[in-house]
Design a protein around this nucleic acid. Structure first.
Lengths: 247, 247
DNA sequence: CGGAGGGTTGAGATTCATCAACGCGTGTGG
DNA sequence: CCACACGCGTTGATGAATCTCAACCCTCCG
């Protein structure tokens, strides 16, 4: 088997391995296995024990919860270099979430045992986990708040804003990273509602054409910013931000 | 100043200090400060930097997010021995949440600096944080799923179920830990809806009289259980659980 | 060519929030 | 001691927002 070296490019290294020494990285990778899966394959069922951490090498995956009627609540949508189940391993019980591929995917599974020993022996690894889990948790808080006190329009707007900030400010053109119905469910609305919201956004200077979002100007999404998100914006301390806020 | 020794009773020790050696605990406590606050006092605003971890010694506190209209989305409700802001410290930005007392409260503040040095020097402390944060995250997942795919009745039912499981099975009588309107907002509904739900629950064998919940029998709340919560139930592997599930 | 899946649009149904009124217990000041 | 205000909770009537259902279009692909 050819040795697995997916992280030669530092820019694409997953956060999970930040600052990990080559020897320690080797200890993790030598125990991990690569898996390939078709679309819509369930990798873990809610209520079962998590086998370890999944790192997405290629493809896309979602984590979700399901009720008795088969309705799904999407918790996270993951693409390449994202990881899941880190948190579940430390919850000390059966998994509260189901993990399912969206499209055909290639994954790395880091077994539970390795994770749990590494976390006790490698402080950097422990801190990485802590940072990842807290980031997820922050995201979850935004999701909770979105459900209670945001309209569908605001939910989509904020989602687009985060994508815009990830992509960088100069970028006025974004691609939707997932199918619309997938995003719609992640944002807690039906595909119909999502579609109608896109029409409203068009009038506000956010034009969605097929899978491409085009912003009229750099402030088109400022409506949807909030107190803790401004920190991610390059203009947040400039006077121009006042323009955003006053929109 | 009299030395601070709140944790002589092992049963009441907060999870944050599990398995921490006396010397290491001393390092934490010697840098921490006790604060007293009136009701409805804001301890930290969304968008500001977190000063450290708050440990509730007495009273009650909530964490929340607020929108431009002043509507609140409650993230967590905390009582004695609960902690908050552990996660926020590792998110690496301004706080996504506001922290506010509910009633008159006495708190211990563990400054950020202490937390961040201890976590690198004390693996047990790091793992405790990881466990706490993941527990919060799990809770957040339940909240997300509740908003998407649960009715108000199911939300209240599940909330009562978790309280029932915390209190122990033999306990058919529970006290609401917070005012009804506080719980209602936490569950993402209006006080009016909460009140109407309680009436429905009465017909299902869950009688709420003032602040006391009385269960008709041990199975009254089994309706509201789900795949990952059964693990917390003492009957989950017995045949009687089938009775629950088939309700 | 025909079928399947994704997306959009319109009409109707449903659910929960809103608004208003009321009851009740408590604390306060005349 | 009573009158009153206030906070909390409940109840009923109304309305708005989103989901549901159905039809349709489009593209892709066998």
């Amino acid at each position: 088997m050819p040795r697995f070296h997916p992280f030669m490019d530092e820019n694409k290294k997953p956060q999970l391995f930040d600052h990990i020494s080559p020897e320690n990285l080797e200890k993790i990778l030598s125990c991990s296995v690569i898996q390939e899966h078709d679309a819509n394959k369930i990798l873990l069922n809610q209520g079962d024990a998590a086998p370890g951490i999944f790192l997405i090498l290629e493809g896309s995956v979602k984590t979700l919860r399901m009720n008795a009627d088969g309705e799904e609540a999407t918790i996270r949508l993951l693409g390449a270099n994202d990881t899941c189940l880190e948190a579940v391993l430390f919850m000390g019980g059966p998994s509260p979430i189901t993990v399912q591929t969206i499209g055909k995917s290639r994954l790395l599974l880091i077994p539970e045992k390795v994770v749990k020993t590494r976390v006790l022996e490698d402080n950097e690894f422990a801190v990485n986990l802590l940072r990842i889990v807290t980031r997820h948790y922050k995201n979850a808080m935004h999701q909770i708040d979105a459900m209670h006190i945001k309209s569908p329009l605001q939910r989509v707007g904020y989602y687009f804003l985060t994508k815009h900030l990830e992509a960088g400010h100069e970028n006025f053109e974004l691609k939707l990273p997932f199918k619309k119905q997938i995003i719609a469910n992640y944002l807690g609305m039906t595909p119909e509602t999502f579609s109608r919201v896109l029409k409203q956004l068009k009038e506000l200077g956010v034009d969605t054409d097929d899978n491409t979002i085009r912003l009229k100007d750099a402030y088109a999404l400022c409506h949807f910013c909030d107190a803790d998100t401004t920190a991610l914006c390059q203009r947040h301390d400039k006077s121009s931000c006042q323009v955003c806020m006053s929109h």
